[in-house]
Design a protein around this nucleic acid. Structure first.
Length: 112
DNA sequence: TTTCTGACTCGAA
DNA sequence: CTTCGAGCCAGAA
């Protein structure tokens, strides 16, 4: 895979970029995929610096499907609108039918 | 250098 | 059922 020279952040970005259209994943799932299951916070922190990059940070939510990071986007509902435009239903910052749109890198990427 | 905080998560009380 | 605390990594003060 990637050399260890790349920081945890870089790896987070790469995984986030692999999230397919109409799907979402959680900070913890990405963290676990990177081998740091208890470093979900760092993933969220990394997302903070992903703004302006090719990283679809809006497709990353917490494990409950709650848009905890929406406050970091422009306006108050940009994150939600972006997700809804991909066919994901959101009510009160909560993704509906979350498990149906959940993309697990642990499962999807292990087959590559 | 130490300390604090953060878009999280899990387990215990 | 709700509430609380600990653990993780990185960067700023």
């Amino acid at each position: 895979m990637k050399p260890e020279t790349e920081s945890f952040f870089e790896r987070v970005y790469e995984v986030a970029k692999l999230i397919p259209y109409g799907k979402v994943t959680s900070y913890g799932a990405i963290a676990k995929y990177l081998g740091a299951a208890k470093s979900a916070r760092i993933v969220g922190y990394a997302m903070n610096g992903s703004f302006g990059k090719d990283v679809p940070a809006y497709r990353v939510v917490n494990r409950k499907g709650l848009l905890t990071g929406k406050h970091h986007f422009e306006g108050t509902n940009l994150m939600q609108q972006l997700l809804e435009s991909e066919g994901i239903e959101i009510i009160d910052n909560q993704i509906q039918n979350f498990e149906a749109v959940f993309w697990n890198p642990l499962v999807e990427l292990e087959q590559l």
